[in-house]
Design a protein around this nucleic acid. Structure first.
Length: 426
DNA sequence: TCTGGGGTCCTAGGACCC
DNA sequence: TCTGGGGTCCTAGGACCC
């Protein structure tokens, strides 16, 4: 029986491509997308990559290259990207089987049992259909394992003669390819591992593939051992077709200034808690653990303070008021008045489906829980109909919300009536 | 002046139990 | 002076990813 093949279907420069769909004048121009607060570069067109602007580069450090080369800059428009992602995934789900949605812009799928030539045609068909339906260009990498599919996809993207579809299983000299790939470019190998691998003379993907499996396990752990096996064609990372529920929810933000005042942090943490609780209810879960964290300015030098403290939520709950209450108790414990903070956040975990909620021996009864659920459902409905923040808790404050900076945001082309592009007849 | 946000998995070590 | 041993569960922290 022929080996099962896996495809990685990955959008090219996804956020940039989303902007280009609705603004064709951006095609061929250098375009980049910034993170929240217009802080760092998170998506780059090929033209921008060629200018030497790297992923994660702070905006202010890239300024001179941007100005010199007339780079088009956009703040991130997650509403647009999320909607375009859904469209892409819908198309791909119709065309493929055994789909694992891996991130906002990529998915793995099982390749039908075709010949090598047919596999390429299948990949081309996927590219063409996604582009026709959404306007987003994608690349397809085909291989017997996920790790090799990642490599195949990169080759498809970078080599124009592949036209964006590359099947590594059809290559006679795979080792030759692996030899040319630095180990840092292998999926699952981060900088920490690269530093450690170097000590033992492992520099390329081929070195990693050929390393002794037991030694890898002992020195670097099971993840690198698996990665090495995947490079040699043994599938160790299974396709996860069933989308599972979230295991944690985080809501955090950096502040545009260093913050010392407790009252400011109290309001922020309350807002984060309410937002996280809203996401939790959308998941249909309750949380049993609340964590709050603070962070002083990482770039200012000097002593750092980055506390992270968790407290149980008893009984587990998805009510914003319950979660805000515990979050503020934690905040009081970790707050030091002599520090200035650049970032704060909340994390919810220990989830249990709302339907399996059990009342504690003492305290909240099932009836009281239902009452809270109805209340929160009403709050969520109001916010859905009238916009975020229409109904909020007292602790969230009413003062200046200090909205995230998005100086260069494009219109919400696909999700807001007033932003829908108008096509004019000539 | 200006440096993101949201996830997952693995592991070591502590708490606890018998 | 001498102070068990093994199992499980939980959590914090590390590493990685997009």
């Amino acid at each position: 029986m022929p080996q099962k093949m896996i495809a990685l279907i990955d959008a090219n420069n996804f956020y940039v491509s989303c902007e280009r769909v609705f603004n064709p004048s951006l095609r061929k121009k250098p375009v980049l997308i910034l993170s929240n607060n217009d802080g760092i570069v998170i998506s780059r067109s090929n033209e921008v990559k060629n200018l030497g602007i790297t992923m994660g580069m702070p905006f202010f450090k890239a300024q001179h290259i941007i100005q010199k080369n007339n780079v088009e800059v956009f703040s991130s428009n997650y509403e647009l990207y999320g909607d375009m992602s859904h469209r892409m995934i819908d198309t791909l789900s119709d065309m493929t089987e055994g789909v694992e949605i891996y991130s906002i812009d990529e998915l793995f799928s099982v390749v039908p049992s075709f010949s090598a030539a047919e596999r390429i045609l299948w990949g081309n068909d996927i590219q063409n259909t996604v582009f026709k339906n959404t306007g987003i260009p994608v690349s397809v990498g085909i291989a017997p394992t996920k790790t090799l599919a990642k490599i195949a996809c990169e080759i498809g993207k970078k080599n124009s003669d592949t036209h964006g579809v590359f099947d590594i299983s059809h290559v006679s000299d795979i080792d030759g390819i692996l030899k040319s790939i630095p180990v840092s470019d292998v999926w699952g190998v981060g900088q920490r591992s690269v530093d450690k691998l170097r000590l033992y003379g492992i520099f390329t993907a081929l070195d990693l593939k050929n390393a002794d499996s037991h030694v890898l396990r002992e020195r670097y752990g099971v993840i690198l051992q698996r990665t090495a096996m995947e490079l040699s064609g043994v599938s160790c990372i299974a396709l996860e077709e069933v989308s599972h529920h979230k295991k944690s929810i985080v809501c955090s933000r950096s502040f545009s200034k260093n913050i010392q005042k407790f009252s400011f942090l109290r309001e922020k943490v309350s807002i984060f808690a309410a937002r996280a609780a809203e996401k939790l209810r959308a998941e249909g879960s309750t949380a049993s653990l609340v964590s709050v964290f603070l962070q002083t300015n990482r770039y200012s030098g000097g002593q750092q303070y980055a506390p992270f403290l968790s407290e149980p939520l008893v009984p587990s709950s998805s009510s914003s008021s319950d979660i805000i209450l515990v979050a503020l108790q934690i905040l009081k414990k970790i707050y030091l008045s002599h520090c200035t903070y650049k970032k704060a956040g909340i994390m919810l975990s220990g989830f249990c489906p709302n339907t399996q909620w059990q009342p504690p021996l003492f305290g909240v009864t099932e009836k009281e829980k239902k009452k809270k659920d109805v209340f929160m459902k009403t709050v969520d409905s109001i916010n859905n109909i009238f916009g975020k923040g229409s109904a909020s808790f007292f602790a969230e404050g009413t003062g200046s919300k200090q909205e995230t900076i998005r100086k260069y945001c494009s219109p919400l082309y696909t999700t807001h009536w007033q932003d829908i592009p108008i096509v004019k007849a000539q």
